[in-house]
Design a protein around this nucleic acid. Structure first.
Length: 506
RNA sequence: GCCCCCAUCGUCUAGAGGCCUAGGACACCACCCUUUCAAGGUGGAGACCGCGGGUUCGAAUCCCGCUGGGGGUACCA
């Protein structure tokens, strides 16, 4: 019995530096990375920067940052294709010498003309193989003419003109293409740079890639890639084309136009990489029962072959929900605190010293975060939800409209009296005793003939400046007596000059 | 136009011939909890498994056609 050698799993994520890393690309990267980790193989980062016109400065750095943020660390790379030009040129020449490629001297203008004609006649547009059958003399002549213009020919791959090419995709099965409908693609451009078709295939072979994972949009050119491997006599890696991600409305691929699609945008907006990964992996893959996965769970359970072949729509809603779930129920308090601090520091609410987990400032943030943990959907929201805990006195909370102090069906005078009595009561109270504060204020409401809410809401607005806040008694405790009293005073003062706009109905 | 892929609640999906009078999650609605808002709990509405043919004792599950959606059609990736 001969044992079949099972090649080591080696996969790569190969983005082109033409912009930010999109969630679609991030998902492909995630699938690829999980597959590598699951099978104990290697994950390589390769930057496909072979198009000088579309190159965007800083884009590669952004992609690197995105992957790092998501925790998709690579074992090799980043490798830049632009630094490997001679390799591709050598391979193009090899194909030329072995009759698998030919020089094409056609001008862009002629190519456009050919396509226009084909379209008009209802034929599939494509290169008409004009230069494929040039005689050696004609080739020399064309070279000379082109050289006079200071231009170079391109090199095209010779596709078989008949028969079929079978592309065997891991998640779709075998797909058969008619060779006569395929064209002779350019593999080396006139500027000496390779096109994707040559560069990616050469690299995938040289880097011993076992599985080519890439977006579904590459499926139509897969037969070309199979033929390139065949021409070189190389063993074909397994092809894997996860589906594209659709816009929320399903009309087309998710793109920049649809708002937030850049991974770094989500980082900035206070999303957690854990939530991002968890959401993304569920877009096209499922373990059946489970909904939440730690990275280790995923590495253990993820199967590339189980990825769905049908495209899924991106849901901002569900991502947000997932993020909230991680903040509310997965992160430890300490972890959440540490992640909130930078946002509070950036907003100028807490000193940079709070970055130190042992600092009193950090402890203070932790105390505050405890109260809003269940209310945060994103990390950035911590600023608007808790700013009043970090400002002193009453200035920062005085912005609210006085009328918000007065609940429906409640007389302003009663509110004012209630706040005055509350102030008098709290002066001597121990705010650390939440239950005690609650009992005291409930009794006070009773005594004033008010429902609890009719007294609590004005207090809430007075001390927080808003109608929505964490629980009142824990808020009072964390605020501390100084702030509470100062803000009650400010509210009472506002009410002193307040005239009810509309008399309460009923 | 041509080529290719895909097709279960609005959305993400479970389902690999009988376990399905189709399960879960998001969103939505109601109720409970309740000092606001959340979170949480309970329940509800929501899919004749795109349509039409087959195969089979039996199909969401297999086959064919149609329709619909998506992708590709560059000296871009």
């Amino acid at each position: 019995m001969t044992e079949r050698r099972v090649p080591r799993v080696r996969v790569r994520f190969a983005p082109s530096p033409t912009g930010d890393l999109h969630v679609g690309g991030a998902r492909t990267a995630l699938f690829t990375w999980l597959f590598a980790r699951h099978s104990g193989g290697d994950f390589i980062l390769r930057v496909e920067d072979t198009d000088r016109r579309r190159y965007v400065e800083g884009s590669a750095a952004g992609i690197v940052e995105s992957l790092q943020w998501l925790g998709l660390e690579w074992d090799e790379g980043p490798i830049f294709q632009s630094e490997r030009l001679p390799i591709y040129q050598e391979h193009a020449n090899w194909l030329l010498e072995h009759d698998h490629a030919y020089e094409c001297f056609c001008s862009p203008g002629r190519l456009e003309q050919v396509r226009a004609g084909q379209r008009a006649r209802g034929e599939p547009p494509g290169y008409d193989r004009h230069c494929r059958s040039l005689t050696p003399q004609e080739i020399d002549e064309q070279r000379r003419l082109l050289a006079q213009e200071g231009r170079n020919p391109v090199i095209r791959f010779k596709m078989p003109e008949s028969g079929t090419t079978v592309v065997d995709d891991l998640i779709r099965g075998p797909i058969t293409f008619e060779n006569r409908l395929l064209e002779d693609a350019v593999i080396l451009k006139s500027d000496g740079f390779p096109t994707y078709h040559l560069a990616a295939m050469v690299d995938d072979h040289l880097m011993e890639i076992s599985h080519i994972t890439r977006g579904e949009e590459w499926l139509p050119s897969a037969p070309l890639h199979v033929q390139i491997f065949r021409a070189f006599g190389w063993e074909m890696p397994v092809l894997v084309h996860p589906p594209v991600i659709l816009r929320p409305d399903g009309k087309g691929k998710l793109s920049k136009r649809d708002g937030a699609v850049g991974v770094l945008e989500y980082k900035r907006k206070g999303y957690l990489p854990e939530a991002m990964n968890n959401y993304l992996v569920l877009l096209g893959w499922s373990a059946g029962d489970q909904e939440f996965f730690s990275t280790d769970d995923l590495i253990e359970r993820f199967e590339l072959a189980d990825v769905s072949a049908s495209p899924a729509r991106f849901s901002f809603d569900k991502l947000l929900w997932m993020n909230q779930h991680y903040i509310n129920h997965v992160l430890t308090l300490e972890d959440l605190t540490a992640r909130c601090v930078p946002y509070l520091v950036a907003a100028g609410l807490v000193p940079a010293a709070a970055e130190d987990p042992a600092s009193p400032e950090h402890a203070r943030v932790r105390e505050v975060v405890t109260l809003v943990k269940d209310r945060l959907k994103t990390l950035t929201e911590v600023v608007e939800l808790t700013d009043f805990f970090f400002t002193d006195g009453a200035e920062a909370t005085e912005e609210y409209a006085t009328e918000t102090l007065v609940p429906r069906k409640t007389e302003p005078a009663a509110v004012r009296a209630g706040l005055e009595r509350t102030r008098a009561t709290l002066v001597g109270a121990d705010l650390d005793d939440e239950a005690g504060t609650e009992a005291t204020l409930r009794a006070l409401a009773d005594e004033l003939g008010l429902k609890a809410g009719q007294l609590f809401m004005p207090i809430r607005v007075a001390v927080t400046g808003r109608t929505v806040s964490p629980g009142l008694f824990e808020t009072l405790r964390v605020l501390g007596k100084d702030r509470v009293l100062a803000r009650l005073d400010a509210a009472i003062a506002k009410l002193a000059t307040y005239r009810s706009q509309a008399s309460p109905a009923g």
